[in-house]
Write a protein that binds this DNA or RNA. Structure first.
Length: 453
RNA sequence: GGCGCGGUGGUAGAGUGGUUAUGCAGCGGAUUGCAAAUCCGUGAACAGCGGUUCGAAUCCGCUCCGCGCCUCCA
């Protein structure tokens, strides 16, 4: 099976045909660094990390670019609110983002450009848009003139008349057309700004992705990804900017958008108190469980994030780790993932189907362990980015759990002695005491093992 | 108002025009001193109404319900 991708541009699943099979290019919209990443931010990171891993098994070179937006009015607002220096906020937040995503086993992209380091490229692109007659400067602003691009609206499937009819926004007086959007805007003295042909100012929201993707991937590249909410206006405007500035027909060939995330059936929002950051969730549950949970639904579906679901995902991973633990002496064969597992992923990243195949492999492995099967399971797990922890560490915690391992081992030894003496009341009491400490025992043919509940 | 997406068993969640998804939970059994883990067996679904078809949960239409986006941050 060849790789198929659902393309938002055509609203169809299509065969993926690279521009150049020897060099795949992929761009994903990254975080605006003003606060901790929430679980909704984590979904595209995880989804496109799996895509990246899959692409690397199919093609020799894949370049994954994900930006960091470190100039934005949300950041400015945060700085004003806390009094903290902007640079301090963005650096700290970017660092936290990296730590949190690493905990989710999401690798770093090949290139992670920052907006503030590409102002010159943005200005240059804006100048070309003016030259080409697609943009105009007025009152220190530069605006993209939407009617100058007849194809505008292709990605989001809307036409200008419909949008204007339903528009619920006030139109700024300096706009030639209500749909025109900002490429550059003036900065007051108390917000970040850069010198430009139009005075001191800062870039609009969309231009950084156009400028940075061009720099690292070229005028036209293979895949552009991001959250579903970015289709309009962000990605629509990126297309307009890039195609008009570069004089190209196509910007990205395949547009992929992950579905939205709900929390306990409701839209995630701070006012509802159901706003989870990855940082906080990692206090309660391993990042791998969050990752595996997210992959239990196909990436385009809406995802209802629940605490119960997280627990279940953790329990499922326990089952996989348990199988590895019981066969710790068995050296896995160096094999690749089975075709039907890979085929599921090649079908627009059907992770739930792929995981179901993984469950089948696990059942077979539990019945009759073999190096071959173990190797297959680990190969699949590597592509999904799971089962990457040390097995004993997974069950016993990372040392911060506050349990005394030596004490546990001593109690287990006592219980074995009690059992040998047929003192089952004592044996059960010890086991109950351990449960009270959060420790669960498993008596196996080779001895007793323990894990944290 | 415009554009778009979705409604599958107790639950999460795939898929296909006619044949077991899978996981969790449930029930029965094996194993165990009792458990845990594991294994075996098992019930259960395709929002509603029409249409196409030999046959539709799968295609088409309508209805109902839920959700997202609608421009520089509501």
């Amino acid at each position: 099976m060849t790789l198929h991708i659902y393309n938002t541009l055509t609203r169809k699943k299509e065969i993926f045909t690279p521009i150049n099979p020897d060099q795949i290019g992929m761009y994903v919209c990254g975080p605006t660094v003003y606060d901790f990443a929430h679980i909704g931010n984590a979904r595209p990171v995880i989804v496109f990390d799996v895509l990246y891993r899959l692409l690397k098994t199919l093609y020799p070179n894949v370049t994954y670019v994900r930006n960091i937006t470190d100039v934005d009015d949300k950041i400015n607002a945060k700085s004003k609110e806390t009094g903290e220096d902007i640079r301090t906020i963005t650096e700290r937040t970017a660092k936290a983002f990296h730590e949190d995503m690493a905990a989710l086993n999401a690798g770093r992209p090949d290139i992670e450009p920052r907006a503030t380091e590409h102002i010159a490229e943005m200005i240059e692109m804006i100048e070309r848009l003016i030259e080409n007659g697609n943009a105009y400067a007025i009152d220190g602003h530069v605006l993209f003139h939407v009617p100058s691009m007849p194809e505008y609206g292709t990605l989001s499937g809307r036409n200008m008349d419909d949008m204007i009819a339903g528009a619920r926004v006030e139109v700024a007086s300096y706009k030639k057309d209500p749909a025109d959007f900002v490429l550059w805007k003036p900065s007051a003295d108390d917000v970040p700004g850069w010198d430009s042909p139009w005075g001191r100012g800062r870039p609009g929201w969309h231009i950084e992705c156009s400028a940075m993707s061009r720099k690292y991937l070229g005028d036209t590249f293979d895949i552009h990804g991001g959250g579903h909410d970015l289709i309009f206006p962000h990605h629509e405007n990126e297309i307009a900017q890039s195609c008009c500035a570069n004089n190209t027909e196509k910007y990205a060939n395949y547009w992929m958008h992950n579905g939205h995330l709900m929390v306990e059936g409701e839209k995630m929002s701070k006012s509802l108190g159901n706003f989870f950051t990855v940082h906080d969730l990692l206090e309660e549950v391993p990042g791998e469980a969050l990752r595996f949970y997210m992959l239990s639904a196909q990436y385009r579906s809406p995802f209802d994030f629940t605490k119960e679901g997280v627990k279940e995902a953790k329990a499922t991973l326990d089952r996989f780790y348990s199988a590895l633990r019981q066969t710790s002496d068995l050296e896995p064969a160096q094999v690749s993932a089975p075709d039907k597992f890979i085929d599921a992923l090649k079908d627009d990243l059907n992770t739930p189907l792929a995981i179901s195949h993984l469950h089948e492999s696990l059942s077979a492995f539990n019945k009759t362990p073999s190096a071959e099967l173990k190797g297959q399971i680990l190969a699949c797990a590597e592509i999904l980015g799971i089962l990457q922890q040390d097995v004993e560490g997974w069950f016993k915690g990372t040392g911060s759990s506050g349990v005394d391992e030596a004490e546990i081992e001593r109690m287990i030894a006592d219980r074995i002695a009690a059992k040998a003496g047929k003192d089952f009341a004592m044996a059960d009491k010890i086991r109950d005491d351990l449960v009270a400490m959060g420790v669960v025992l498993e008596d196996g043919p080779t001895g007793t093992t323990w894990k944290l509940k």
